[in-house]
Amino acid sequence: MDLILQLISNVLIPGLLFALIAAGFSLTYSVTRVLHLANGGVVIVAGYGFYTGYSLWHWPIWSASLLAIAIAILTGLFINAQIHERMREHGIVSAAGMLVATISVLLIIQNILLAIFGSAPKSFADLQGTVHEFGPVIFTDHEIRILVLIPILLIIFILLLKKTKTGKALRAVADHEQVAEVVGIASRKMRMLAFGISSFLAGIAGILFAIEYNLDPSMGIMITVRMIFRAILGGVGSIGGAILGSLSTETIVALTGYYWNVSWVDFSSFLLTFVVLLIRPNGILGKKKRIV
């Protein structure tokens, strides 16, 4: 029992962080049909925005967080407007072209951050707070923040998509862009909104991630690779799939680390995705999935 609780605590922290990142990725994919691989870049941009505000300028934590989220949203909107919308205007819809573009953006972001901030990891250990023991499980203040904040955000996000007019319009564009235009929904605005929302989520994840695991520029690619594997495992284009894919991958990672060896966790998590895709090529949720 103690072991199970400990494993659960090891699953939830990274699982929730990646759920938030992958949920945004899935939203942009279903609304814009762009595989937004630069999303991992947006996450670390937010991390460095927070570092700039908090560590360099000595702003209070809330102002630094707002700065980080604002920079993340601007980055996402910029990527959408200057790259993806432009490619659409020129009629470039090839998957390969989009893929090259989005990977380039990710690499450019990483290299800009490397040039400005250097490769040394930035630590926010002072923000992790005190350690709390709940029986066999240990959480820091910051981890409790993650455990409370991310589920609330995900629930609000899902409710917005399910219940509000704008959320329905986003789903309408995801379902059928031409019909959405026919009823007067401006699909271009919805694509912008999808990038805005996913960057907002990536921004929050970036701050939480940086405090939990430190921050260095090479994390952009690492986060993107993990994000895409988790999203595809659950069923890309679905928020539930993003959450499911993140939590199940972290479960495998935790089990591998405990019963086998920590150096094999990447192997087993990628193997999990590989095996699931062999059986269900459209991910755990399969073909019938929807955004929410």
């Binding site: 329905k168 319009a169 789903r171 379902d175 059928h176 019909v179 959405a180 929904i185």
Partner: peptide, 14 residues
């Protein structure tokens, strides 16, 4: 052509 994943009510709302 409709919005396939949305309900009939949601389609009409759209």
């Amino acid at each position: 052509i409709n919005f396939p994943s949305m309900t009939v009510r949601e389609n009409l709302e759209m």
